[in-house]
Amino acid sequence: MSLLKINGLKAGVEGKEILKGIDLTVNPGEVHAIMGPNGSGKSTLASVLAGREDFEVSGGSVEFLGQDLLEMSPEDRSRAGLFLAFQYPIEIPGVSTANFLKTAVNEHRKARGEEPLEPAAFLALMRERMKLVEMDPSFLQRSLNEGFSGGEKKRNEIFQMAMLEPKLAVLDETDSGLDIDALRIVANGVNAQRSADNGIVVITHYQRLLNYIVPDHVHVLWNGRIVRSGGKDLALELEAKGYDWIKAEAQVEA
């Protein structure tokens, strides 16, 4: 069974259609990259998958592990194994990273009918998973994302992903605002979580992240549609030639 099966998905905001019919299937073990110029609908796709209410779905269907994803609440999507690494992670003053994650992990466990983790076991798990993104344990006691640098916030997203162990992770421009060292750290953290059972969708504007997280499939999103799909070489081609040729091609086809 595929992890994610998107068929003819149309969605928009305030009557304006942004996604104009997306088809995409992600199978276990696969990494898909979705690339495209600004305003092509990449982040909208991520938001719609996560269930953000601002967006209205006007057509198509999304199956997640055989369930109708669009019928599920955002928290149920999360508990079912869908994770979104936010492009702009939110700061929550007064709520420590540890407390936030403890609540999140225990909500996931409760949904699976499991008991909350013992505090000592939870601490050990957090410390181990932080190492994946080279985060210092002192971050656990700091308010979530408050005063974190851009790179620290992105590392924190990947750390949260490691704690929640999603079936499908959607990384929304996780590379934006990262210097080359942070990019490598974040990519290593993601790669460590690749397995034959889970899938990853990497949304990015630039090819450079894909040097570190090597995708199995690359899709180009433009004007609300996937206009071209290919292997990892497609990303290199885009890097070399830019998006204009894709746009021109798509216009000819349309």
Partner: peptide
């Protein structure tokens, strides 16, 4: 809404 959606996305209602 931004904060609540972030929490929802992590499984916290």
């Amino acid at each position: 809404e931004d904060i609540l959606f972030y929490c929802n996305q992590r499984g916290i209602d």
